[in-house]
Nucleic acid binder design. Structure first.
Lengths: 247, 247
DNA sequence: CCGACGTTTCGTCCGCGGCCGAAGCGTTCG
DNA sequence: CGAACGCTTCGGCCGCGGACGAAACGTCGG
Protein backbone atom coordinates (compact mmCIF):
# COMPACT_ATOMS: atom_id res chain seq x y z
CA UNK A 1 0.00 0.00 0.00
CA UNK A 2 2.12 2.88 1.18
CA UNK A 3 5.44 3.09 -0.57
CA UNK A 4 7.69 1.47 1.98
CA UNK A 5 7.70 0.74 5.67
CA UNK A 6 9.29 3.50 7.66
CA UNK A 7 13.01 2.75 7.75
CA UNK A 8 12.98 1.78 11.38
CA UNK A 9 15.71 3.44 13.34
CA UNK A 10 18.71 1.34 12.47
CA UNK A 11 16.86 -1.90 11.87
CA UNK A 12 19.51 -2.26 9.24
CA UNK A 13 22.15 -1.55 11.85
CA UNK A 14 20.76 -4.39 13.90
CA UNK A 15 21.13 -6.74 10.97
CA UNK A 16 24.70 -5.60 10.43
CA UNK A 17 25.70 -6.24 14.02
CA UNK A 18 23.85 -9.53 14.22
CA UNK A 19 25.33 -10.73 10.95
CA UNK A 20 28.79 -10.08 12.34
CA UNK A 21 28.04 -12.18 15.40
CA UNK A 22 26.27 -14.72 13.22
CA UNK A 23 29.38 -16.31 11.78
CA UNK A 24 30.60 -19.32 13.79
CA UNK A 25 34.22 -18.25 13.76
CA UNK A 26 33.37 -14.72 14.87
CA UNK A 27 30.96 -16.02 17.50
CA UNK A 28 33.79 -18.10 18.91
CA UNK A 29 36.03 -15.05 18.94
CA UNK A 30 33.48 -12.96 20.78
CA UNK A 31 32.71 -15.76 23.19
CA UNK A 32 36.38 -16.13 23.98
CA UNK A 33 36.60 -12.41 24.65
CA UNK A 34 33.66 -12.67 27.04
CA UNK A 35 36.28 -13.88 29.50
CA UNK A 36 37.20 -10.24 29.89
CA UNK A 37 40.85 -10.53 28.95
CA UNK A 38 42.35 -9.01 25.85
CA UNK A 39 43.64 -11.75 23.57
CA UNK A 40 46.07 -11.74 20.67
CA UNK A 41 45.07 -12.46 17.10
CA UNK A 42 46.82 -15.79 17.29
CA UNK A 43 45.00 -16.89 20.40
CA UNK A 44 41.75 -15.83 18.84
CA UNK A 45 42.53 -17.82 15.72
CA UNK A 46 42.89 -20.85 17.93
CA UNK A 47 39.58 -20.18 19.60
CA UNK A 48 37.89 -19.43 16.30
CA UNK A 49 38.98 -22.72 14.81
CA UNK A 50 40.10 -21.19 11.52
CA UNK A 51 43.43 -20.11 10.08
CA UNK A 52 45.31 -16.95 10.87
CA UNK A 53 44.49 -15.13 7.64
CA UNK A 54 40.80 -15.80 7.99
CA UNK A 55 40.88 -14.70 11.60
CA UNK A 56 42.62 -11.51 10.63
CA UNK A 57 39.82 -10.67 8.26
CA UNK A 58 37.21 -11.36 10.92
CA UNK A 59 39.01 -9.22 13.44
CA UNK A 60 39.24 -6.36 10.97
CA UNK A 61 35.52 -6.50 10.34
CA UNK A 62 34.64 -6.69 14.00
CA UNK A 63 36.95 -3.81 14.82
CA UNK A 64 35.68 -1.61 12.03
CA UNK A 65 32.13 -2.21 13.16
CA UNK A 66 33.07 -1.07 16.64
CA UNK A 67 32.55 -4.41 18.33
CA UNK A 68 36.19 -4.89 19.20
CA UNK A 69 38.93 -2.56 20.35
CA UNK A 70 42.50 -3.29 19.38
CA UNK A 71 45.74 -2.34 21.04
CA UNK A 72 49.14 -2.86 19.44
CA UNK A 73 51.85 -4.11 21.72
CA UNK A 74 55.08 -5.09 20.08
CA UNK A 75 54.40 -7.62 17.41
CA UNK A 76 51.16 -8.67 19.04
CA UNK A 77 47.78 -7.14 18.68
CA UNK A 78 45.49 -7.43 21.62
CA UNK A 79 41.77 -7.47 20.96
CA UNK A 80 39.03 -6.97 23.52
CA UNK A 81 35.30 -6.27 23.51
CA UNK A 82 34.82 -2.62 22.72
CA UNK A 83 32.13 -1.92 25.31
CA UNK A 84 29.92 -3.48 27.96
CA UNK A 85 27.03 -3.07 25.54
CA UNK A 86 28.60 -5.71 23.32
CA UNK A 87 28.90 -8.02 26.29
CA UNK A 88 25.25 -7.39 26.99
CA UNK A 89 24.34 -8.56 23.51
CA UNK A 90 26.35 -11.73 23.91
CA UNK A 91 24.81 -12.30 27.30
CA UNK A 92 21.27 -12.04 25.99
CA UNK A 93 22.14 -14.28 23.06
CA UNK A 94 23.46 -16.92 25.43
CA UNK A 95 20.21 -16.77 27.35
CA UNK A 96 18.28 -17.52 24.17
CA UNK A 97 20.72 -20.11 22.88
CA UNK A 98 20.71 -22.13 26.09
CA UNK A 99 17.01 -21.71 26.76
CA UNK A 100 16.15 -23.98 23.89
CA UNK A 101 15.96 -27.78 23.89
CA UNK A 102 17.69 -28.54 27.17
CA UNK A 103 20.40 -30.77 25.79
CA UNK A 104 21.85 -32.85 28.51
CA UNK A 105 25.35 -31.55 29.09
CA UNK A 106 27.21 -33.87 31.45
CA UNK A 107 29.27 -31.65 33.74
CA UNK A 108 32.87 -32.67 33.36
CA UNK A 109 35.76 -31.78 35.65
CA UNK A 110 36.64 -28.91 33.36
CA UNK A 111 33.19 -27.54 33.91
CA UNK A 112 33.55 -27.84 37.64
CA UNK A 113 36.24 -25.17 37.76
CA UNK A 114 34.06 -22.94 35.62
CA UNK A 115 31.05 -23.50 37.80
CA UNK A 116 32.93 -22.65 40.95
CA UNK A 117 34.36 -19.31 39.90
CA UNK A 118 34.86 -17.66 36.57
CA UNK A 119 34.76 -14.30 34.89
CA UNK A 120 31.79 -13.13 32.88
CA UNK A 121 33.18 -10.33 30.73
CA UNK A 122 34.41 -8.02 33.47
CA UNK A 123 32.75 -9.36 36.59
CA UNK A 124 32.60 -12.52 38.67
CA UNK A 125 30.25 -15.39 37.91
CA UNK A 126 29.90 -18.98 38.98
CA UNK A 127 29.12 -19.96 42.55
CA UNK A 128 31.56 -17.33 43.80
CA UNK A 129 29.70 -14.65 41.89
CA UNK A 130 26.22 -15.70 42.95
CA UNK A 131 27.25 -16.30 46.54
CA UNK A 132 28.91 -12.92 46.69
CA UNK A 133 25.72 -11.31 45.46
CA UNK A 134 23.63 -13.25 47.96
CA UNK A 135 25.83 -12.34 50.93
CA UNK A 136 25.84 -8.68 49.99
CA UNK A 137 22.09 -8.86 49.68
CA UNK A 138 21.70 -10.49 53.10
CA UNK A 139 23.91 -7.85 54.67
CA UNK A 140 21.91 -5.04 53.13
CA UNK A 141 24.74 -3.76 50.98
CA UNK A 142 22.71 -4.26 47.85
CA UNK A 143 19.08 -5.08 47.21
CA UNK A 144 18.77 -7.95 44.80
CA UNK A 145 15.68 -8.15 42.64
CA UNK A 146 15.05 -10.64 39.90
CA UNK A 147 15.26 -7.98 37.25
CA UNK A 148 17.82 -5.63 38.74
CA UNK A 149 19.79 -4.59 41.77
CA UNK A 150 20.45 -1.44 43.75
CA UNK A 151 23.34 -0.38 45.95
CA UNK A 152 22.10 0.80 49.31
CA UNK A 153 23.52 3.70 51.25
CA UNK A 154 25.27 1.43 53.71
CA UNK A 155 26.48 -0.62 50.79
CA UNK A 156 28.04 2.41 49.24
CA UNK A 157 29.75 3.29 52.51
CA UNK A 158 30.96 -0.25 52.95
CA UNK A 159 32.44 -0.44 49.49
CA UNK A 160 34.04 2.95 49.82
CA UNK A 161 35.68 1.64 52.96
CA UNK A 162 37.17 -1.13 50.87
CA UNK A 163 38.72 1.48 48.64
CA UNK A 164 36.33 0.79 45.83
CA UNK A 165 35.46 3.87 43.86
CA UNK A 166 33.05 3.85 40.95
CA UNK A 167 34.27 6.19 38.28
CA UNK A 168 31.77 6.97 35.60
CA UNK A 169 33.93 5.20 33.07
CA UNK A 170 34.52 8.20 30.91
CA UNK A 171 31.06 9.54 30.40
CA UNK A 172 29.60 6.27 29.24
CA UNK A 173 26.16 5.60 30.58
CA UNK A 174 27.14 2.33 32.11
CA UNK A 175 24.93 1.34 35.05
CA UNK A 176 26.45 1.23 38.50
CA UNK A 177 24.83 -2.06 39.35
CA UNK A 178 23.22 -4.61 37.10
CA UNK A 179 22.38 -8.24 37.52
CA UNK A 180 23.55 -10.88 35.12
CA UNK A 181 21.72 -14.17 34.96
CA UNK A 182 24.25 -16.82 34.25
CA UNK A 183 23.77 -19.99 32.33
CA UNK A 184 25.31 -22.45 34.76
CA UNK A 185 23.85 -21.35 38.07
CA UNK A 186 20.59 -19.95 36.72
CA UNK A 187 20.91 -17.30 39.40
CA UNK A 188 21.81 -13.66 39.43
CA UNK A 189 25.18 -12.17 40.10
CA UNK A 190 26.36 -8.58 40.16
CA UNK A 191 27.47 -6.82 37.00
CA UNK A 192 27.81 -3.18 35.98
CA UNK A 193 30.48 -0.89 37.37
CA UNK A 194 30.07 -2.49 40.79
CA UNK A 195 30.65 -5.98 39.43
CA UNK A 196 33.68 -4.79 37.50
CA UNK A 197 35.11 -3.13 40.61
CA UNK A 198 34.62 -6.28 42.67
CA UNK A 199 36.47 -8.37 40.10
CA UNK A 200 39.38 -6.01 39.61
CA UNK A 201 39.68 -5.55 43.36
CA UNK A 202 39.76 -9.30 43.88
CA UNK A 203 42.43 -9.68 41.23
CA UNK A 204 44.55 -6.83 42.57
CA UNK A 205 44.48 -8.23 46.08
CA UNK A 206 45.47 -11.65 44.78
CA UNK A 207 42.28 -13.23 46.04
CA UNK A 208 41.78 -14.91 42.69
CA UNK A 209 44.01 -15.69 39.73
CA UNK A 210 43.04 -16.35 36.17
CA UNK A 211 43.45 -19.86 34.83
CA UNK A 212 45.13 -19.75 31.41
CA UNK A 213 43.08 -20.50 28.30
CA UNK A 214 39.89 -20.48 30.31
CA UNK A 215 37.37 -18.17 31.80
CA UNK A 216 37.73 -19.94 35.11
CA UNK A 217 39.54 -18.34 38.03
CA UNK A 218 41.11 -20.03 41.04
CA UNK A 219 40.58 -18.79 44.58
CA UNK A 220 43.89 -18.37 46.36
CA UNK A 221 44.67 -18.88 50.04
CA UNK A 222 44.53 -15.14 50.57
CA UNK A 223 41.27 -15.09 48.68
CA UNK A 224 39.72 -17.81 50.76
CA UNK A 225 40.54 -15.78 53.83
CA UNK A 226 39.64 -12.44 52.29
CA UNK A 227 36.24 -13.46 51.01
CA UNK A 228 35.48 -15.00 54.41
CA UNK A 229 36.45 -12.04 56.56
CA UNK A 230 35.18 -9.27 54.31
CA UNK A 231 32.06 -10.84 52.87
CA UNK A 232 31.46 -13.87 55.07
CA UNK A 233 31.86 -16.34 52.26
CA UNK A 234 33.14 -19.60 53.69
CA UNK A 235 34.51 -22.36 51.46
CA UNK A 236 31.51 -24.49 52.38
CA UNK A 237 29.25 -22.01 50.63
CA UNK A 238 31.15 -22.62 47.43
CA UNK A 239 30.96 -26.40 47.66
CA UNK A 240 29.85 -28.14 44.52
CA UNK A 241 26.80 -29.77 46.03
CA UNK A 242 25.44 -26.74 47.79
CA UNK A 243 22.51 -26.94 45.43
CA UNK A 244 21.71 -30.37 46.82
CA UNK A 245 21.69 -29.04 50.36
CA UNK A 246 19.29 -26.31 49.34
CA UNK A 247 17.12 -28.17 46.88
CA UNK B 1 48.52 -26.83 20.68
CA UNK B 2 45.81 -28.71 22.47
CA UNK B 3 43.43 -30.42 20.13
CA UNK B 4 40.61 -27.92 20.03
CA UNK B 5 39.24 -25.17 22.17
CA UNK B 6 36.59 -26.42 24.54
CA UNK B 7 33.29 -26.31 22.65
CA UNK B 8 32.00 -23.38 24.61
CA UNK B 9 28.50 -23.93 25.85
CA UNK B 10 26.47 -23.19 22.76
CA UNK B 11 28.85 -20.71 21.20
CA UNK B 12 27.58 -22.32 18.06
CA UNK B 13 24.04 -21.74 19.19
CA UNK B 14 24.85 -18.07 19.56
CA UNK B 15 26.04 -17.94 15.99
CA UNK B 16 22.90 -19.67 14.79
CA UNK B 17 20.61 -17.21 16.54
CA UNK B 18 22.66 -14.20 15.52
CA UNK B 19 22.84 -15.33 11.91
CA UNK B 20 19.07 -15.54 11.84
CA UNK B 21 18.77 -11.96 13.08
CA UNK B 22 21.62 -10.95 10.81
CA UNK B 23 19.65 -10.96 7.59
CA UNK B 24 18.14 -7.55 6.75
CA UNK B 25 14.73 -8.94 5.86
CA UNK B 26 14.56 -11.01 9.05
CA UNK B 27 15.82 -8.11 11.12
CA UNK B 28 12.99 -6.02 9.74
CA UNK B 29 10.52 -8.76 10.61
CA UNK B 30 11.77 -9.01 14.16
CA UNK B 31 11.87 -5.24 14.53
CA UNK B 32 8.28 -5.03 13.37
CA UNK B 33 7.29 -7.64 15.92
CA UNK B 34 8.99 -5.62 18.64
CA UNK B 35 5.80 -3.58 18.57
CA UNK B 36 4.32 -6.40 20.60
CA UNK B 37 1.45 -7.26 18.29
CA UNK B 38 1.14 -10.49 16.38
CA UNK B 39 1.30 -9.78 12.65
CA UNK B 40 0.30 -11.83 9.63
CA UNK B 41 2.78 -13.19 7.12
CA UNK B 42 1.61 -10.66 4.58
CA UNK B 43 2.11 -7.71 6.89
CA UNK B 44 5.53 -9.00 7.74
CA UNK B 45 6.40 -9.34 4.08
CA UNK B 46 5.57 -5.68 3.70
CA UNK B 47 7.78 -4.78 6.65
CA UNK B 48 10.55 -7.03 5.45
CA UNK B 49 10.62 -5.43 2.03
CA UNK B 50 10.76 -8.74 0.16
CA UNK B 51 8.24 -10.91 -1.61
CA UNK B 52 5.78 -13.26 0.01
CA UNK B 53 7.61 -16.49 -0.86
CA UNK B 54 10.87 -15.20 0.54
CA UNK B 55 9.14 -14.00 3.67
CA UNK B 56 7.53 -17.37 4.12
CA UNK B 57 10.92 -19.01 4.09
CA UNK B 58 12.25 -16.54 6.64
CA UNK B 59 9.29 -17.07 8.91
CA UNK B 60 9.72 -20.81 8.74
CA UNK B 61 13.35 -20.53 9.76
CA UNK B 62 12.64 -18.12 12.58
CA UNK B 63 9.84 -20.29 13.88
CA UNK B 64 11.82 -23.48 13.73
CA UNK B 65 14.64 -21.83 15.63
CA UNK B 66 12.20 -20.86 18.35
CA UNK B 67 12.42 -17.14 17.81
CA UNK B 68 8.85 -16.78 16.64
CA UNK B 69 5.60 -18.36 17.67
CA UNK B 70 2.87 -18.84 15.10
CA UNK B 71 -0.85 -19.12 15.48
CA UNK B 72 -3.20 -20.09 12.67
CA UNK B 73 -6.39 -18.15 12.45
CA UNK B 74 -8.56 -18.73 9.41
CA UNK B 75 -6.45 -18.22 6.36
CA UNK B 76 -4.05 -15.97 8.20
CA UNK B 77 -1.05 -16.93 10.22
CA UNK B 78 -0.15 -14.66 13.04
CA UNK B 79 3.45 -14.48 14.08
CA UNK B 80 4.82 -12.99 17.29
CA UNK B 81 8.06 -13.03 19.21
CA UNK B 82 8.32 -16.35 21.00
CA UNK B 83 9.56 -15.02 24.32
CA UNK B 84 10.69 -11.91 26.19
CA UNK B 85 14.23 -13.22 25.91
CA UNK B 86 14.11 -12.64 22.18
CA UNK B 87 12.94 -9.10 22.79
CA UNK B 88 15.85 -8.66 25.16
CA UNK B 89 18.27 -9.64 22.41
CA UNK B 90 16.74 -7.16 20.00
CA UNK B 91 16.81 -4.50 22.68
CA UNK B 92 20.49 -4.97 23.38
CA UNK B 93 21.24 -5.02 19.67
CA UNK B 94 19.46 -1.71 19.25
CA UNK B 95 21.57 -0.25 22.03
CA UNK B 96 24.72 -1.24 20.16
CA UNK B 97 23.43 -0.25 16.75
CA UNK B 98 22.41 3.23 17.84
CA UNK B 99 25.40 3.79 20.09
CA UNK B 100 27.70 4.02 17.10
CA UNK B 101 28.48 7.07 15.01
CA UNK B 102 25.70 9.39 16.15
CA UNK B 103 24.16 10.00 12.75
CA UNK B 104 22.03 13.06 12.88
CA UNK B 105 18.47 11.84 12.56
CA UNK B 106 16.17 14.83 12.05
CA UNK B 107 13.04 14.10 14.08
CA UNK B 108 10.12 14.19 11.69
CA UNK B 109 6.44 14.41 12.60
CA UNK B 110 6.16 10.65 12.32
CA UNK B 111 8.83 10.35 14.95
CA UNK B 112 7.01 12.70 17.23
CA UNK B 113 4.15 10.29 17.79
CA UNK B 114 6.66 7.54 18.48
CA UNK B 115 8.57 9.68 20.91
CA UNK B 116 5.46 10.60 22.84
CA UNK B 117 4.11 7.13 23.46
CA UNK B 118 4.79 3.77 21.90
CA UNK B 119 5.08 0.12 22.72
CA UNK B 120 8.40 -1.58 23.24
CA UNK B 121 7.61 -5.26 22.79
CA UNK B 122 5.05 -5.66 25.55
CA UNK B 123 5.48 -2.53 27.64
CA UNK B 124 5.22 1.23 27.31
CA UNK B 125 8.05 3.40 26.07
CA UNK B 126 8.47 6.95 24.86
CA UNK B 127 7.83 9.92 27.09
CA UNK B 128 4.76 8.23 28.50
CA UNK B 129 6.82 5.23 29.51
CA UNK B 130 9.67 7.17 31.07
CA UNK B 131 7.36 9.62 32.81
CA UNK B 132 5.32 6.77 34.20
CA UNK B 133 8.46 5.22 35.59
CA UNK B 134 9.59 8.52 37.07
CA UNK B 135 6.27 9.23 38.77
CA UNK B 136 6.12 5.75 40.26
CA UNK B 137 9.64 6.24 41.49
CA UNK B 138 8.83 9.60 43.08
CA UNK B 139 5.83 8.10 44.80
CA UNK B 140 7.85 5.25 46.19
CA UNK B 141 6.00 2.57 44.28
CA UNK B 142 9.19 1.42 42.63
CA UNK B 143 12.83 2.21 43.21
CA UNK B 144 14.50 3.12 39.97
CA UNK B 145 18.21 2.46 39.60
CA UNK B 146 20.25 2.91 36.49
CA UNK B 147 20.75 -0.79 36.12
CA UNK B 148 17.51 -2.16 37.49
CA UNK B 149 14.35 -1.48 39.39
CA UNK B 150 12.48 -2.93 42.34
CA UNK B 151 8.83 -2.89 43.31
CA UNK B 152 8.40 -1.67 46.87
CA UNK B 153 5.90 -3.05 49.33
CA UNK B 154 3.64 -0.03 49.00
CA UNK B 155 4.05 -0.30 45.25
CA UNK B 156 2.85 -3.85 45.31
CA UNK B 157 -0.16 -2.86 47.41
CA UNK B 158 -0.93 0.07 45.15
CA UNK B 159 -0.81 -2.03 42.01
CA UNK B 160 -2.87 -4.77 43.56
CA UNK B 161 -5.44 -2.11 44.32
CA UNK B 162 -5.53 -1.34 40.62
CA UNK B 163 -6.40 -4.94 39.95
CA UNK B 164 -2.98 -5.73 38.56
CA UNK B 165 -1.83 -9.21 39.32
CA UNK B 166 1.53 -10.57 38.29
CA UNK B 167 1.21 -14.17 37.27
CA UNK B 168 4.45 -15.99 36.89
CA UNK B 169 3.78 -16.37 33.19
CA UNK B 170 3.69 -20.11 33.24
CA UNK B 171 6.82 -21.00 35.08
CA UNK B 172 9.11 -18.89 32.95
CA UNK B 173 11.73 -17.07 34.91
CA UNK B 174 10.69 -13.71 33.65
CA UNK B 175 11.63 -10.89 36.04
CA UNK B 176 8.87 -8.98 37.76
CA UNK B 177 10.43 -5.64 37.10
CA UNK B 178 13.16 -4.70 34.69
CA UNK B 179 14.28 -1.43 33.24
CA UNK B 180 14.58 -0.90 29.52
CA UNK B 181 16.78 1.89 28.25
CA UNK B 182 15.18 3.22 25.16
CA UNK B 183 16.84 4.68 22.14
CA UNK B 184 14.82 7.87 21.78
CA UNK B 185 14.60 9.12 25.34
CA UNK B 186 17.88 7.69 26.54
CA UNK B 187 16.14 7.08 29.84
CA UNK B 188 14.79 4.09 31.64
CA UNK B 189 11.27 2.83 31.57
CA UNK B 190 9.66 -0.17 33.21
CA UNK B 191 9.68 -3.58 31.59
CA UNK B 192 9.28 -7.11 32.87
CA UNK B 193 5.99 -8.51 34.08
CA UNK B 194 5.18 -5.17 35.71
CA UNK B 195 5.71 -3.27 32.47
CA UNK B 196 3.62 -5.77 30.57
CA UNK B 197 0.81 -5.49 33.12
CA UNK B 198 0.85 -1.69 32.92
CA UNK B 199 0.56 -1.79 29.14
CA UNK B 200 -2.21 -4.36 28.96
CA UNK B 201 -4.07 -2.58 31.74
CA UNK B 202 -3.83 0.72 29.86
CA UNK B 203 -5.10 -0.93 26.70
CA UNK B 204 -7.96 -2.69 28.44
CA UNK B 205 -9.13 0.49 30.08
CA UNK B 206 -9.00 2.31 26.78
CA UNK B 207 -6.41 4.78 28.05
CA UNK B 208 -4.36 4.22 24.94
CA UNK B 209 -5.05 2.78 21.49
CA UNK B 210 -2.61 1.34 19.02
CA UNK B 211 -1.92 3.31 15.85
CA UNK B 212 -2.05 0.99 12.84
CA UNK B 213 1.18 0.04 11.08
CA UNK B 214 3.22 1.64 13.80
CA UNK B 215 4.55 1.02 17.25
CA UNK B 216 3.12 4.34 18.36
CA UNK B 217 0.07 4.52 20.59
CA UNK B 218 -2.33 7.42 21.06
CA UNK B 219 -3.49 8.59 24.47
CA UNK B 220 -7.27 8.83 24.59
CA UNK B 221 -9.39 11.28 26.53
CA UNK B 222 -10.01 8.64 29.15
CA UNK B 223 -6.31 7.94 29.22
CA UNK B 224 -5.37 11.54 29.70
CA UNK B 225 -7.67 11.62 32.72
CA UNK B 226 -6.72 8.19 33.96
CA UNK B 227 -2.98 8.72 33.89
CA UNK B 228 -3.46 12.05 35.65
CA UNK B 229 -5.64 10.81 38.48
CA UNK B 230 -3.97 7.46 39.06
CA UNK B 231 -0.35 8.31 38.42
CA UNK B 232 -0.30 12.10 38.45
CA UNK B 233 0.86 12.35 34.86
CA UNK B 234 -0.40 15.62 33.44
CA UNK B 235 -0.30 16.33 29.70
CA UNK B 236 2.33 18.97 30.34
CA UNK B 237 4.72 16.27 31.50
CA UNK B 238 4.42 14.64 28.12
CA UNK B 239 5.06 17.82 26.14
CA UNK B 240 7.64 17.51 23.43
CA UNK B 241 9.99 20.13 24.83
CA UNK B 242 9.96 18.91 28.40
CA UNK B 243 13.61 18.11 27.97
CA UNK B 244 14.31 21.74 27.32
CA UNK B 245 12.60 22.76 30.52
CA UNK B 246 14.67 20.29 32.47
CA UNK B 247 17.99 20.59 30.70
C1' DC C 1 72.10 -8.11 9.85
C1' DC C 2 69.66 -12.12 9.16
C1' DG C 3 66.27 -15.56 10.55
C1' DA C 4 62.04 -16.62 13.28
C1' DC C 5 57.66 -15.15 14.49
C1' DG C 6 53.10 -12.76 14.52
C1' DT C 7 49.99 -10.53 11.61
C1' DT C 8 48.06 -8.74 7.49
C1' DT C 9 47.14 -8.51 2.37
C1' DC C 10 46.24 -10.66 -1.99
C1' DG C 11 44.24 -13.94 -5.10
C1' DT C 12 41.39 -17.75 -5.75
C1' DC C 13 37.98 -21.15 -5.11
C1' DC C 14 33.58 -22.68 -3.81
C1' DG C 15 29.44 -23.42 -1.30
C1' DC C 16 25.68 -21.48 1.20
C1' DG C 17 21.66 -18.85 1.10
C1' DG C 18 18.57 -15.00 -0.34
C1' DC C 19 15.55 -13.71 -4.04
C1' DC C 20 11.95 -14.30 -7.39
C1' DG C 21 8.30 -16.54 -10.64
C1' DA C 22 5.29 -20.25 -11.14
C1' DA C 23 2.55 -23.54 -9.22
C1' DG C 24 0.09 -25.99 -5.30
C1' DC C 25 -2.81 -26.17 -1.04
C1' DG C 26 -6.22 -24.45 2.15
C1' DT C 27 -9.71 -20.95 3.43
C1' DT C 28 -13.26 -17.51 2.65
C1' DC C 29 -16.66 -15.26 0.01
C1' DG C 30 -20.06 -14.37 -3.76
C1' DC D 1 -19.28 -24.40 -6.93
C1' DG D 2 -15.90 -21.41 -8.80
C1' DA D 3 -13.14 -17.29 -8.06
C1' DA D 4 -10.33 -14.55 -5.09
C1' DC D 5 -7.23 -14.48 -1.41
C1' DG D 6 -3.37 -15.81 1.91
C1' DC D 7 0.30 -18.53 2.40
C1' DT D 8 3.57 -22.14 1.29
C1' DT D 9 6.47 -25.19 -1.71
C1' DC D 10 9.40 -25.89 -5.66
C1' DG D 11 13.00 -24.84 -9.00
C1' DG D 12 16.55 -22.04 -10.65
C1' DC D 13 19.46 -18.02 -10.74
C1' DC D 14 23.04 -15.33 -8.83
C1' DG D 15 25.90 -12.88 -5.74
C1' DC D 16 28.01 -12.46 -1.33
C1' DG D 17 31.35 -13.96 1.76
C1' DG D 18 34.18 -17.40 4.24
C1' DA D 19 38.00 -20.55 3.62
C1' DC D 20 42.88 -21.38 2.46
C1' DG D 21 47.89 -20.87 0.39
C1' DA D 22 51.34 -17.83 -0.82
C1' DA D 23 53.57 -13.79 -0.11
C1' DA D 24 54.46 -9.16 2.02
C1' DC D 25 55.01 -6.28 6.20
C1' DG D 26 56.62 -5.36 10.77
C1' DT D 27 58.80 -6.72 15.14
C1' DC D 28 61.86 -9.23 18.20
C1' DG D 29 66.06 -12.22 19.07
C1' DG D 30 70.76 -13.95 18.15
Amino acid sequence: MTSQPLPIASANGIATIAALIGDPARANILSALMGGQALTAGELAWHAGVGAPTTSGHLAKLSEAGLLAVERQGRHRYYRLASPDIAQVMESLMAVATAGPRRHRPPGPKDEALRTARTCYDHLAGRLGTTLADRMNERGLVILGDGGALVTGSGHDFLSGLGLAFPDAGGTRRPLCRVCLDWSERRSHLAGRLGAALLSCSLERGWIVRIPDSRAVAITEAGSQGFATVFGITPELLAADSSLAVG
